[in-house]
Design a protein around this nucleic acid. Sequence first.
DNA 1: CCTCCACCGGAACTTACGGAGT
DNA 2: ACTCCGTAAGTTCCGGTGGAGG
Length: 406
Amino acid sequence: MEDVVSEVIKKALGESKIFKNREALACDYIPNRLPHREEYIRKTAELLSPVLRGEKPSNIFLYGLTGTGKTAVVKYVIKRFTEHAEKAGIDFFKFSYVNCRNEDTNYRVLFKVGSDIGAKIPFTGLSVAELHNRLREYVESKRMIVTIVLDEVDFLVKKVGDDLLYRLTRINDELYRSKVSIIGITNDVKFVETLDPRVKSSLGEVEVVFPPYDALQLADILRERAVLAFRENVLDSGVIEYCASVAAREHGDARRALDLLRFAGEIAERESALKVTIEHAKKAREELEVNAATEVVRTLPYHSKLILLSLATRGGFAESTGSLYLAYRKICDILGLEPLAQRRVSELISELDMLGILTSKVISRGRYGKTKEIALGIDSTVILKVLSSDTRIGEYVKLLKNDRNR
DNA sequence: CCTCCACCGGAACTTACGGAGT
DNA sequence: ACTCCGTAAGTTCCGGTGGAGG
């Protein structure tokens, strides 16, 4: 009998029966065509076209929910412009793409910009102000148009404020031979309202809103990518439509649709199936959902976990805030912890509701008061399993099981 | 129609904590 | 090393409320 590991190794190294190029379904893949975004590509390219003549384009702000193609459109246009520049031997415009979720401090953003445009900058040791100056001097000395793309810029601002944005929008006042323009991308629509009015007006010279995709458009996108990603005839009919309709229900998120399709393919591969079927897609959806849920539960504050624990041990249902609170206090007592006030617990319940882990409904029982009816949104055994990764909770759960067996 | 339960949920206040500036 | 400031998490206080039962 062959040993298991070498079997796995052989499988991993061997040609995939399902995938031709798995990468084509990754969310950071830039395809050659972006279906249903042609007009946005045109608009973005037109807005950026001044750089081709060595002039400064307007600052641009792009909004739209997650997975509506903002990043893909911008990256696509940048790629094409850069290709053109290389072919024509032009070097008077440069792009810098910064994802503010990864580069989440002022220093790291500036550092990324610096390395993207070819300035040599020590990766530590300078103050932010000094870094800013050096960058400005470098840009000025090279006589060029720099376009900085700040993706998920709301992350940066939430973490360190809009100081950097303000300085970047004002940097042109000190540049004579060169210019800098900014493209901000965010999926938080309310975010712009929180900005300093000065930043808001100069950053939002032009605003472009990306609408969500509908199910048919998502299906088109998936079809296009599927041709690249999968071998011929491995996709069962209806798989693409299924993935598209699931994602369309969640505000038309193309990223989710792609994830789903890729994961369905991976499941099919794991099962050594010859075709990717709707069953695989359904399984993928379930697993992705459970994964997302367990991830949320795992990162919950401790007392929120305890509230969930109280709910899960009562069969996932509580007829009132008061009764759940009592159960929660009992658990706190057993674990020797200070319980939170009921007011706070009530709020935490509402937060859990918003996260989609449980549903709480405010109801009135007339004479018997007004309260929240609370029900778990996920299977309670799943919750208990996830919560048990905390040692103290785990012990408690074990204790309960023993009691029940007796 | 009124009452009154068992909370809801707004507001103001207290602590604790992690930077920024000096 | 120091203060200062903003923020997050909780607490206390309290007015508000939908509707069953009188």
